[in-house]
Protein backbone atom coordinates (compact mmCIF):
# COMPACT_ATOMS: atom_id res chain seq x y z
CA UNK A 1 0.00 0.00 0.00
CA UNK A 2 1.35 3.41 -0.90
CA UNK A 3 1.85 5.73 2.05
CA UNK A 4 3.27 8.53 -0.09
CA UNK A 5 2.16 9.36 -3.57
CA UNK A 6 3.60 12.12 -5.73
CA UNK A 7 1.84 12.95 -8.97
CA UNK A 8 3.31 14.97 -11.84
CA UNK A 9 5.47 17.34 -9.82
CA UNK A 10 6.73 20.44 -11.63
CA UNK A 11 9.05 22.89 -9.89
CA UNK A 12 10.94 25.81 -11.38
CA UNK A 13 12.80 28.83 -10.04
CA UNK A 14 12.45 31.61 -12.59
CA UNK A 15 13.57 30.11 -15.87
CA UNK A 16 15.29 27.15 -14.24
CA UNK A 17 13.27 23.95 -14.49
CA UNK A 18 14.20 21.95 -11.40
CA UNK A 19 11.66 19.14 -11.48
CA UNK A 20 9.85 18.09 -14.60
CA UNK A 21 6.81 15.83 -14.33
CA UNK A 22 8.13 13.64 -11.53
CA UNK A 23 5.75 10.97 -10.21
CA UNK A 24 6.44 8.18 -7.79
CA UNK A 25 4.88 6.35 -4.91
CA UNK A 26 6.44 4.90 -1.79
CA UNK A 27 5.03 1.77 -0.20
CA UNK A 28 4.45 1.52 3.50
CA UNK A 29 7.47 0.03 5.29
CA UNK A 30 9.99 0.16 2.47
CA UNK A 31 13.28 1.96 2.04
CA UNK A 32 12.93 4.05 -1.07
CA UNK A 33 16.06 5.72 -2.44
CA UNK A 34 16.32 8.71 -4.74
CA UNK A 35 19.64 8.93 -6.56
CA UNK A 36 21.05 10.96 -9.39
CA UNK A 37 23.98 13.18 -10.32
CA UNK A 38 24.51 16.53 -8.55
CA UNK A 39 21.82 19.05 -9.43
CA UNK A 40 19.36 16.36 -10.51
CA UNK A 41 16.70 17.72 -8.15
CA UNK A 42 16.87 15.20 -5.30
CA UNK A 43 16.90 17.64 -2.42
CA UNK A 44 14.27 19.74 -4.21
CA UNK A 45 11.93 16.76 -4.05
CA UNK A 46 12.46 16.47 -0.30
CA UNK A 47 11.85 20.20 0.06
CA UNK A 48 8.58 19.86 -1.84
CA UNK A 49 7.58 16.93 0.37
CA UNK A 50 8.48 18.87 3.51
CA UNK A 51 6.64 21.99 2.37
CA UNK A 52 9.64 24.31 2.05
CA UNK A 53 9.37 24.59 -1.75
CA UNK A 54 6.06 25.08 -3.50
CA UNK A 55 5.65 23.12 -6.68
CA UNK A 56 4.04 24.91 -9.61
CA UNK A 57 2.06 21.84 -10.59
CA UNK A 58 1.46 18.40 -9.19
CA UNK A 59 0.06 16.90 -6.03
CA UNK A 60 1.40 15.08 -3.00
CA UNK A 61 -0.66 12.59 -1.02
CA UNK A 62 0.56 11.38 2.34
CA UNK A 63 -1.26 8.73 4.30
CA UNK A 64 -4.52 9.50 2.52
CA UNK A 65 -4.27 13.30 2.92
CA UNK A 66 -3.58 15.75 0.15
CA UNK A 67 -0.69 17.71 1.64
CA UNK A 68 0.25 19.62 -1.52
CA UNK A 69 -0.51 23.03 -0.10
CA UNK A 70 -0.22 22.83 3.67
CA UNK A 71 2.53 24.38 5.79
CA UNK A 72 5.67 22.51 6.91
CA UNK A 73 4.66 22.37 10.56
CA UNK A 74 1.31 20.78 9.76
CA UNK A 75 3.01 18.18 7.59
CA UNK A 76 5.29 17.39 10.52
CA UNK A 77 2.26 16.97 12.75
CA UNK A 78 0.82 14.47 10.26
CA UNK A 79 3.87 12.26 10.71
CA UNK A 80 6.48 13.45 8.28
CA UNK A 81 9.98 13.75 9.76
CA UNK A 82 13.21 14.76 8.16
CA UNK A 83 16.96 14.91 8.60
CA UNK A 84 19.00 17.46 6.74
CA UNK A 85 22.01 17.36 4.47
CA UNK A 86 23.64 20.12 6.52
CA UNK A 87 22.83 19.23 10.07
CA UNK A 88 20.03 21.38 11.46
CA UNK A 89 20.25 20.87 15.20
CA UNK A 90 19.50 23.44 17.88
CA UNK A 91 23.14 24.17 18.64
CA UNK A 92 22.90 25.85 22.01
CA UNK A 93 20.83 23.03 23.46
CA UNK A 94 21.86 19.67 24.84
CA UNK A 95 21.34 16.37 23.06
CA UNK A 96 18.42 15.54 25.32
CA UNK A 97 16.74 18.93 24.78
CA UNK A 98 17.04 18.47 21.05
CA UNK A 99 15.40 15.08 21.26
CA UNK A 100 12.67 16.43 23.53
CA UNK A 101 11.85 19.00 20.89
CA UNK A 102 11.21 16.18 18.46
CA UNK A 103 8.14 15.24 20.42
CA UNK A 104 6.91 18.78 20.12
CA UNK A 105 4.97 18.14 16.93
CA UNK A 106 2.38 16.23 18.88
CA UNK A 107 1.79 18.98 21.37
CA UNK A 108 -0.40 21.78 20.20
CA UNK A 109 1.65 24.95 19.97
CA UNK A 110 -1.40 27.21 20.11
CA UNK A 111 -1.46 30.03 22.60
CA UNK A 112 -4.47 28.75 24.50
CA UNK A 113 -3.38 25.15 24.37
CA UNK A 114 -0.21 26.00 26.24
CA UNK A 115 -2.09 27.73 29.03
CA UNK A 116 -4.61 24.91 29.48
CA UNK A 117 -2.20 22.06 29.32
CA UNK A 118 -1.87 20.91 32.90
CA UNK A 119 -3.04 18.21 35.27
CA UNK A 120 -2.86 14.41 35.32
CA UNK A 121 -3.21 13.96 31.56
CA UNK A 122 -0.17 16.15 31.18
CA UNK A 123 1.84 14.12 33.68
CA UNK A 124 0.85 10.86 32.08
CA UNK A 125 1.93 12.04 28.68
CA UNK A 126 5.21 13.33 30.07
CA UNK A 127 5.95 9.89 31.49
CA UNK A 128 5.16 8.22 28.19
CA UNK A 129 7.35 10.66 26.38
CA UNK A 130 10.27 10.16 28.72
CA UNK A 131 10.03 6.45 28.09
CA UNK A 132 10.15 7.06 24.35
CA UNK A 133 13.12 9.39 24.66
CA UNK A 134 15.06 6.89 26.72
CA UNK A 135 14.27 4.11 24.31
CA UNK A 136 15.51 6.16 21.35
CA UNK A 137 18.64 7.21 23.19
CA UNK A 138 19.42 3.57 24.00
CA UNK A 139 18.62 2.48 20.49
CA UNK A 140 20.98 4.97 18.85
CA UNK A 141 23.65 4.44 21.50
CA UNK A 142 23.98 8.08 22.51
CA UNK A 143 23.43 7.59 26.25
CA UNK A 144 26.94 8.85 27.05
CA UNK A 145 26.39 12.25 25.42
CA UNK A 146 22.81 13.03 26.42
CA UNK A 147 23.76 16.00 28.61
CA UNK A 148 26.28 17.50 26.18
CA UNK A 149 25.57 20.55 24.03
CA UNK A 150 25.27 19.35 20.44
CA UNK A 151 27.64 21.98 19.10
CA UNK A 152 30.60 20.24 20.71
CA UNK A 153 29.94 16.79 19.24
CA UNK A 154 31.76 15.11 16.38
CA UNK A 155 30.06 15.24 13.01
CA UNK A 156 28.96 11.62 12.94
CA UNK A 157 27.39 11.92 16.39
CA UNK A 158 25.55 15.09 15.40
CA UNK A 159 23.99 13.23 12.49
CA UNK A 160 22.95 10.52 14.92
CA UNK A 161 21.36 13.05 17.28
CA UNK A 162 19.47 14.52 14.36
CA UNK A 163 18.14 11.06 13.57
CA UNK A 164 17.16 10.58 17.21
CA UNK A 165 15.26 13.86 17.17
CA UNK A 166 13.42 12.81 14.02
CA UNK A 167 12.48 9.47 15.62
CA UNK A 168 11.17 11.22 18.73
CA UNK A 169 8.55 12.74 16.44
CA UNK A 170 7.18 9.20 16.04
CA UNK A 171 6.83 9.77 12.32
CA UNK A 172 5.14 7.56 9.79
CA UNK A 173 7.71 8.42 7.19
CA UNK A 174 11.30 9.58 7.55
CA UNK A 175 13.00 11.64 4.84
CA UNK A 176 16.78 11.42 5.04
CA UNK A 177 18.95 13.76 3.02
CA UNK A 178 22.44 12.23 2.64
CA UNK A 179 22.66 10.60 6.06
CA UNK A 180 26.21 9.32 5.58
CA UNK A 181 27.72 12.16 3.54
CA UNK A 182 31.10 13.11 4.95
CA UNK A 183 31.27 10.17 7.34
CA UNK A 184 34.18 7.80 7.72
CA UNK A 185 33.78 4.06 7.08
CA UNK A 186 32.98 3.21 10.68
CA UNK A 187 30.42 5.99 11.11
CA UNK A 188 28.79 4.98 7.82
CA UNK A 189 28.55 1.38 8.95
CA UNK A 190 26.89 2.44 12.20
CA UNK A 191 24.41 4.63 10.38
CA UNK A 192 23.50 1.88 7.92
CA UNK A 193 22.90 -0.50 10.80
CA UNK A 194 20.65 2.07 12.50
CA UNK A 195 18.65 2.72 9.35
CA UNK A 196 18.02 -1.00 8.81
CA UNK A 197 17.09 -1.49 12.46
CA UNK A 198 14.72 1.45 12.38
CA UNK A 199 12.92 0.08 9.37
CA UNK A 200 12.70 -3.37 10.86
CA UNK A 201 11.81 -2.63 14.47
CA UNK A 202 9.74 0.47 14.03
CA UNK A 203 8.06 -0.42 10.80
CA UNK A 204 8.94 3.00 9.47
CA UNK A 205 8.90 4.03 5.83
CA UNK A 206 12.16 5.70 4.80
CA UNK A 207 12.89 7.89 1.80
CA UNK A 208 16.61 8.37 1.42
CA UNK A 209 18.89 10.46 -0.76
CA UNK A 210 22.51 9.39 -0.90
CA UNK A 211 25.56 9.45 -3.13
CA UNK A 212 27.15 6.39 -1.54
CA UNK A 213 26.13 3.83 -4.19
CA UNK A 214 27.29 0.77 -2.32
CA UNK A 215 25.14 1.69 0.63
CA UNK A 216 22.13 2.51 -1.53
CA UNK A 217 22.34 -0.76 -3.42
CA UNK A 218 22.69 -2.65 -0.12
CA UNK A 219 19.76 -1.26 1.81
CA UNK A 220 17.14 0.03 -0.65
CA UNK A 221 14.02 -1.88 -1.58
CA UNK A 222 13.43 0.35 -4.56
CA UNK A 223 15.35 3.15 -6.21
CA UNK A 224 14.32 6.09 -8.36
CA UNK A 225 16.93 7.69 -10.59
CA UNK A 226 16.70 11.39 -11.45
CA UNK A 227 18.63 13.29 -14.06
CA UNK A 228 18.12 16.97 -14.90
CA UNK A 229 14.87 17.01 -12.94
CA UNK A 230 13.35 14.06 -14.73
CA UNK A 231 12.78 10.54 -13.57
CA UNK A 232 14.77 8.24 -15.83
CA UNK A 233 14.41 4.91 -14.07
CA UNK A 234 12.81 3.15 -11.13
CA UNK A 235 13.10 -0.35 -9.78
CA UNK A 236 14.95 -2.63 -7.39
CA UNK A 237 18.75 -2.29 -7.12
CA UNK A 238 19.49 -5.00 -9.71
CA UNK A 239 17.15 -3.49 -12.26
CA UNK A 240 18.42 0.03 -11.76
CA UNK A 241 22.06 -0.99 -12.00
CA UNK A 242 21.49 -2.51 -15.42
CA UNK A 243 19.22 0.23 -16.75
CA UNK A 244 20.78 1.77 -19.88
CA UNK A 245 19.61 5.31 -19.07
CA UNK A 246 21.20 5.09 -15.63
CA UNK A 247 24.50 3.92 -17.02
CA UNK A 248 24.35 6.77 -19.47
CA UNK A 249 23.66 9.36 -16.78
CA UNK A 250 26.40 8.13 -14.47
CA UNK A 251 29.08 6.91 -16.84
CA UNK A 252 28.42 8.87 -20.01
CA UNK A 253 27.67 7.41 -23.40
CA UNK A 254 29.82 4.73 -24.93
CA UNK A 255 31.45 5.93 -28.09
CA UNK A 256 31.17 3.80 -31.16
CA UNK A 257 34.64 2.49 -32.08
CA UNK A 258 35.85 4.05 -35.27
Amino acid sequence: MAILEVNNLYLSFGGLQVLHDVSFSVNSGEIYAIIGPNGAGKTSILNCLGGFYHQQKGEIFFDGNNISHISPDRRAALGLARTFQNIALFRGMTVLDNIKLGAHAHLKTGLLGAALYWGPAHREEMALREELENEIIDFLEIEHIRKQPVGTLAYGLQKRVELARALAMQPKILLMDEPVAGMNAEETEDMVRFILDIQEERDLTIVIIEHDMRMIMDISDRIMVLNFGQKIAEGNPQEVQKHPEVLKAYLGEKREPR
Partner: peptide, 30 residues
Amino acid sequence: AKVGVAMRATAGDQLAAFSMGINVRSMFTL
Protein backbone atom coordinates in the same frame (compact mmCIF):
# COMPACT_ATOMS: atom_id res chain seq x y z
CA ALA B 1 6.50 26.59 28.96
CA LYS B 2 5.97 24.80 25.68
CA VAL B 3 5.57 28.10 23.90
CA GLY B 4 8.87 29.29 25.30
CA VAL B 5 10.67 26.15 24.23
CA ALA B 6 9.16 26.48 20.75
CA MET B 7 10.33 30.09 20.61
CA ARG B 8 13.84 29.10 21.62
CA ALA B 9 13.83 26.43 18.94
CA THR B 10 12.66 28.96 16.36
CA ALA B 11 15.48 31.26 17.41
CA GLY B 12 17.95 28.38 17.13
CA ASP B 13 17.15 27.07 13.66
CA GLN B 14 14.03 28.02 11.73
CA LEU B 15 14.19 25.19 9.22
CA ALA B 16 14.56 22.59 11.94
CA ALA B 17 11.81 24.23 14.00
CA PHE B 18 9.44 23.98 11.05
CA SER B 19 10.33 20.32 10.61
CA MET B 20 9.57 19.70 14.27
CA GLY B 21 6.02 20.84 13.70
CA ILE B 22 6.51 24.27 15.25
CA ASN B 23 4.43 26.98 13.65
CA VAL B 24 7.31 29.37 13.06
CA ARG B 25 5.12 32.22 11.80
CA SER B 26 3.02 32.31 14.94
CA MET B 27 6.23 32.24 16.98
CA PHE B 28 7.30 35.45 15.18
CA THR B 29 3.98 37.04 16.03
CA LEU B 30 4.29 35.89 19.62
